[in-house]
Design a protein around this nucleic acid. Structure first.
Lengths: 241, 241
DNA sequence: ACAAAGGGATTGTCGGACGTTCGTGTAAAT
DNA sequence: ATTTACACGAACGTCCGACAATCCCTTTGT
């Protein structure tokens, strides 16, 4: 129940009040934005599993914000497809079905492949390389969670090759949606391990200036990844491995 | 000022009240959704030109809804990039710069080309054909506005080839953004005329089952269209042709 | 002329209120 | 015993009003 311990974090969540208004401030996100961020986190790491209902009043009390504010946060997350709203019934953590898996991968194919085909600047390619290395090091350390985020960084970096603000935000939403499938709790150690060689090969092709080859490898990767994901999902989203 | 005549439409905008609750209802959209739809329309046809500030209280009075509701509508439109929010300053109709043009076209290249490459079912290709014919008929009738919407239908139909719900919503948002450049007021008759042959050729390739050729032609089209758009935008978004 | 101080307008967030909708459990009827 | 009807309660949807925080503009002081 107590998603946040009621008082300590509740006060931290609230905006700057009169007494602490004097300190210098550098664009503190609005309260609804911070509530949304908090919920995003809890959804991502499985504290709020799919199909969980989020009640406005309960949340507003736990977080120490008004119902109105919670409502705004909900609207934000609904627009990101992390929550779904059933009119007059409430909002629920999105639970994705087989169809959604395919849909998400369709978007990824469109966006990632297109971005990779474009080539990208040396700096942006360097960032792809950095993500690859981050993944390797995480794998070496056996840090599953870091491996997962490194993988997301990798694909985010791929899209960033296009240098498009809009594509970036679309991709980050898609990545957030993918986390609905794979909470860290439901993913075994070898899950991301498999894709490390793919990442390496794609990155190599990019560094060699062969964007077309990279795109081809990425397409291939996405096909296998979708298949894999669908398989894992088929035996129940709960069954780890 | 009076974007809506205050009373008549205001009541129409409000939700079903007690007295009229008896008639059968089939999923009436929520009040914020209807406000957002209204604003979307007014933005699309230029009644609310870019950089216009939208004030919460003024709108809530004109539309006969509460400030809270207006606020929710704003949030929706901000998430669609039709409005931009300046914290503590207000929301403004988005005004796109040269960089945004390129950005939008980058998204279109990714999404549309990818969808076309996939081929698509006969029914969805038929819908592309229908949009092409709609454009021709509108051009023959000299109906500029219908020509514009037909063009949007065409590109929407292209994306629909992929059969992806998410791609569709992304595309419809992008199309909405494009309307920020081209209000019907600021577009001369020949504006869309030019692209009719392109649409025809792309559609022909699809019908012939040659998705790759269609994708190639589309890529070419998008390049020329972006150039054209950038040119028009360069001589001031106001200058019609 | 320019910096500081003041005021007005608008947003951000809160709190509460009330009708509506939907699920559920209870009671009545067959 | 199963089904239907009804009443209750929990949430949501929308409205209203309030107040501090913030920003812009104007006025004031030097």
């Amino acid at each position: 129940m107590a998603r946040l311990n009621a008082n300590a974090e509740a006060d931290a969540m609230r905006g700057p009040t009169a007494r602490e208004a004097s300190r210098l401030r550098v664009a503190v996100p609005s309260v609804p934005a911070r509530v949304a961020a908090e919920l995003r986190l809890q959804i991502a790491d499985g504290a709020l599993p799919p199909a969980t209902q989020l009640k406005e009043e309960a949340l507003s009390e736990e977080l120490g914000v008004s119902r109105n504010t919670v409502r705004e946060a909900f609207a934000e997350l609904v627009s990101e497809r992390l929550l779904v709203r059933q009119p007059n019934r409430g909002v629920f953590v999105a639970s994705l079905g087989a169809k959604d898996i395919h849909d998400v991968y369709t978007v990824r194919r469109a966006i990632e492949v297109s971005a990779v085909r474009g080539g990208g600047s040396p700096e942006s390619i360097a960032r792809v390389r950095a993500a690859v290395e981050e993944g390797k090091s995480a794998a070496a350390a056996g840090d599953t969670e870091r491996l997962g985020t490194a993988n997301q960084h990798f694909h985010g970096a791929l899209v960033a090759l296009a240098g498009s603000e809009r594509l970036n935000t679309i991709m980050s939403q898609v990545l957030a949606e993918m986390r609905l499938f794979f909470h860290k709790a439901s993913v075994d150690g070898g899950f991301y391990q498999v894709w490390l060689p793919d990442n390496e090969q794609i990155c190599k092709a990019l560094e060699a200036g062969d964007a077309e080859l990279a795109a081809e490898r990425l397409t291939d990767y996405l096909a296998r990844s979708e298949e894999h994901t669908a398989k894992v999902h088929a035996l129940g989203p709960e069954a780890a491995e």
